[in-house]
Nucleic acid binder design. Structure first.
Lengths: 229, 229
DNA sequence: CCAAAAGTGTTAACTCTACACCCATGA
DNA sequence: TCATGGGTGTAGAGTTAACACTTTTGG
């Protein structure tokens, strides 16, 4: 154990949804073995820092992003050589944010920051592609049993926004009528008096997600669960 | 980062099912800050060792147990003082084994090993009670959508064994008829020609779990999923 | 023959799926 | 007025939930 000199890092897979696509936040490395290349935001944990605090800190330092949702994803530490310099074990986190609510900018620790469509990402340094894949998997399955889609949407949205989000992230078609019926039956959406036009066509009713109501229902045994036609 | 001196450990929550109860494997510490106390098997990762290999190694060294099932559970690293000596981040794993298939014995690195009923465990050193709770949660939810119950049973079992396992671990009653119908409908059990008596009463048919068949079905889109009456 | 556990089927309630037409708006 | 997307209901299929008696064995 004395000769254990493993470094501990955190990485964040931060998803954003916009323009009918799922995006992930990458930064251009300012230091490190893959300088000038795009990688997941993240970095080494300080000696007296909680893992989760390290994630928030790195995100601020590198991207100026504050998240709407964050959970631990998986710890990558089986591949001894995942970092070419020395042994690094990374605890990966999954974050969600509405890109509109943040202004990404490379702060002190990155050369650049940008959103990349997940379906355009081919290879990345380290095992970051693997980490992203794991994140997508988690996001997809979690959409079916937790109302996390709302963290990716505007506070006020029309039904087609929500439909498209599910369609996009799950890569499958969904039945508009059945989907709407199901979601509305949960009683966790508030109908506002507004309407909103998306392009041409008839404007849709604007809804908001009532998080408080959802938490109450969850307490009393309700389970958010979606099956698709 | 240079002054980061975090030590990395693994811990294993190994569940066993016997005598109509759910048990967890604990070891009596031979070294360390809680010497002579019962803790989860685990220890420091070697510098050039994959995390998962560290788990297997520690289990052998401390308990002589080889597992039927192992998956990563969660990484505990937010509490800076979870180890009173220095900063230790622990990657916890969830293991399953049929207690009959292993002979636990304290090997080189532990004073003693034993199975403890999970409902008897009150407090443990470090945050090991937390880790166990997380493990139970994962086990309970996973029973509903993966056939991991079979890793806790004998190769040959009668239906009431499976029922009782679900009843015990999920802490709720289940309808025998509906449960049997559901499980049989999956077509992943083989009926043998044997019967087995459990105490007095009519002997039951003996079944085996056809793992190969399950894997095939899973490949072609089948999802093991249980809802309870 | 009694106690204990195994085995078995049906019905009603519910949920899911599939599906098509009219409506409101902007161009 | 046309193109675009929004809003809506129903019937059939499938699934789940509730429920009780007979069978087989060991004592």
């Amino acid at each position: 154990m004395k000769d254990q000199n493993i470094k501990l890092a955190v990485d964040a897979v931060v998803f954003g949804y916009k323009d009918d696509g799922l995006f992930v936040l990458l930064v251009k490395q300012k230091y490190g073995p893959f300088i000038n290349q795009w990688v997941l935001p993240g970095g080494f944990v300080k000696h007296d820092e909680a893992l989760i605090d390290a994630v928030y800190r790195e995100l601020l330092e590198e991207t100026n992003v504050e998240l709407d949702y964050l959970e631990q994803l998986y710890t990558f530490g089986d591949d001894i050589k995942r970092d070419p310099r020395f042994r690094v074990v990374s605890v990966a986190y999954l974050g969600l944010v509405n890109p509109k609510r943040v202004s990404i900018k490379p702060d002190t620790d990155a050369l650049d920051v940008a959103w990349f469509r997940v379906d355009n990402i081919e290879i990345l340094p380290f095992d970051h592609k693997l980490i992203i894949d794991k994140g997508i998997e988690r996001l997809q399955s979690k959409l079916n049993y937790k109302p996390i889609g709302f963290d990716l949407l505007d506070d006020e949205f029309v039904f087609s926004d929500l439909e498209n989000l599910y369609r996009t992230i799950l890569c499958r078609d969904i039945d508009r009528r059945n989907f709407r019926k199901k979601i509305l039956s949960f009683g966790i959406l508030e109908e506002t008096k507004k309407v909103k036009s998306v392009g041409s066509g008839r404007p849709g009713k604007v809804y908001t997600f009532n998080k408080v109501k959802y938490k109450e229902l969850e307490e009393s045994g309700f389970v958010f669960e979606i099956k698709f036609a």
